[in-house]
Computed example of a mutant assay.
Amino acid sequence: MCVIWVCDEEEHVLATWQAPGSCPYCGGAIIGADVQRAWRLCFVPICFSGRRRRFHCSFCNRPLVAVS
C-alpha cells in the first residue's frame, strides 16, 4: 500500500510595507505583508484565497496579530 500526498498550499507575497508601531517583545520594527494563498491538487490550482494582511517583527521574526 502506498499513499501519495498530491495537495499543496502555496503563498505569494504581493506587497510589503513598514507598519506603524514596534514589536511588544523586542521593540523592533513591524513589517506588514499582503499574502495570497493558492491550494493546488496535482499542480492544478483549485482555490485562490483573497489577500490577507500579515504582520511580523523585522528583528525577532515573530508573527504578530493585529487586534481591531
Rank of each mutant, 00 (worst) to 15 (best):
D34L: 14
A15I: 10
E9P: 01
W5T: 06
E9K: 13
T16V: 07
L14R: 10
C7R: 15
N61T: 10
P63G: 03
G50H: 05
Y25W: 12
E9I: 10
P63D: 03
C60E: 08
S58R: 15
I30A: 02
A29R: 15
P45Y: 10
H12F: 00
R51Y: 00
C2V: 09
F59K: 13
A15Q: 15
P24F: 02
R37A: 05
P63E: 03
W17A: 13
R37D: 02
H12Q: 11
P45R: 15
R62M: 10
C57M: 04
A38Y: 01
C47M: 04
R52S: 06
D8F: 04
W39Y: 10
E10C: 10
P24M: 06
D8I: 00
V13D: 10
C47G: 01
E11F: 09
C2E: 12
M1Y: 07
C57E: 02
C42H: 06
F59D: 11
F48I: 00
D8M: 07
L14Q: 06
Y25N: 15
R52M: 04
G32K: 04
C7I: 05
C60N: 11
E9G: 07
F48R: 14
P63Q: 03
G28K: 08
G21I: 10
S58C: 09
L41H: 13
E10S: 14
P63M: 01
D34M: 09
F48Y: 11
S49H: 13
M1P: 12
D34T: 15
S68L: 01
R53V: 11
G50I: 01
M1F: 06
